[in-house]
């Protein structure tokens, strides 16, 4: 399976269709994101997250691709995409953070165990070079909270948020957190000196900013050292946005996010360009 993907990427690089490939690299057992710039590179440590298959080492490759694109004047950049990475790319396109013509997706479908572990709504991209399509996993965590009464919910979240060490890991790993200035670091809005950070303001603020953006990849919950179920919160936010605005994140098309209606149209960088 990995050979299939490697050969495909080699072809893209050799034919000059892409100038770089954002993927994963196994470096002595640690899998990390890597930007491959020539096909020889691919013989050394090329990884899909596991030895030969799409494993559980995941990174916000979509946002790394966004940076890679900005490093080159006009070339296209290839990027390894799972279902979640593709949703992130679609969302970044809708938020004008990327030029669709400069991204070449190389899809892989995730195994069922991984989809299950991350309660994945679509564990495969629209097109994929390798892997088998597995079934989406239904959302159960939000219902669990909704089953509690108001006080039960408050207790639950207050206890969870109190575990926060304010490492900003949830924000830093987020594939769709692209702002240059972050409210969470703005002292006049949220006191910045406290640990745990202002409860529940810090996390509810982040939740609001995830409205019409979060593509439900579960990376935030996966990296959280305090194991706060952040994604459950953002899933609820996504549910509200869907009910109120009929907007679903991470889908193709140029519909603007309801919280971005004042911004420029997709494909434009300013309202009047």
């Amino acid at each position: 399976m990995i050979d299939q993907v490697r050969d495909h990427v080699k072809g893209l690089l050799d034919d000059g269709k892409i100038v770089a490939f954002v993927g994963l690299k196994d470096q002595g057992g640690n899998v990390s994101p890597h930007v491959y710039t020539n096909s020889d590179d691919l013989n050394n440590g090329f990884s899909l997250g596991d030895l030969n298959t799409p494993g559980d080492a995941r990174y916000p490759l979509a946002r790394i691709a966004m940076t890679a694109v900005s490093q080159d004047e006009k070339g296209a950049v290839g990027v390894l995409v799972r279902g979640c990475d593709e949703r992130a790319l679609y969302e970044l396109l809708r938020w004008n953070q990327l030029d669709a013509e400069r991204i070449v997706k190389v899809g892989i479908a995730c195994p069922a165990e991984l989809a299950q572990a991350h309660e994945c709504r679509k564990p495969f991209p629209d097109e994929y070079v390798a892997g088998e399509k597995t079934d989406p996993v239904a959302n159960a965590s939000v219902d669990e909270i909704m089953g509690k009464d108001l006080l039960g919910r408050l207790d639950y979240w207050k206890t969870e948020f109190d575990k926060c060490i304010k490492c900003y890991g949830c924000r830093d790993v987020c594939p769709v957190c692209f702002c240059n200035v972050c409210t969470l670091e703005e002292d006049s809005l949220i006191r910045t000196g406290d640990i745990p950070p202002e409860n529940p303001m810090f996390h509810l603020t982040r939740a609001v900013h995830m409205a019409g953006r979060c593509i439900d990849c579960n990376l935030c919950t996966e990296v959280c050292p305090a194991e706060i179920p952040l994604r459950t919160l953002y899933k609820k936010v996504a549910e509200i946005v869907k009910d109120e605005f009929e907007y679903v994140t991470g889908e193709p098309g140029d519909r603007k996010s309801p919280l971005n209606i004042l911004g420029p149209d997709p494909g434009h960088t300013a309202a009047n360009d």
Binding site: M146, L150, R153, Y156, W157, K158, L204, V208, L233, K236
Partner: peptide
């Protein structure tokens, strides 16, 4: 906003 508050356990 009200729905998010309710989900967090704060009276909307």
């Amino acid at each position: 906003m009200k729905q998010l508050l309710a989900f967090s356990g704060i009276e909307p």
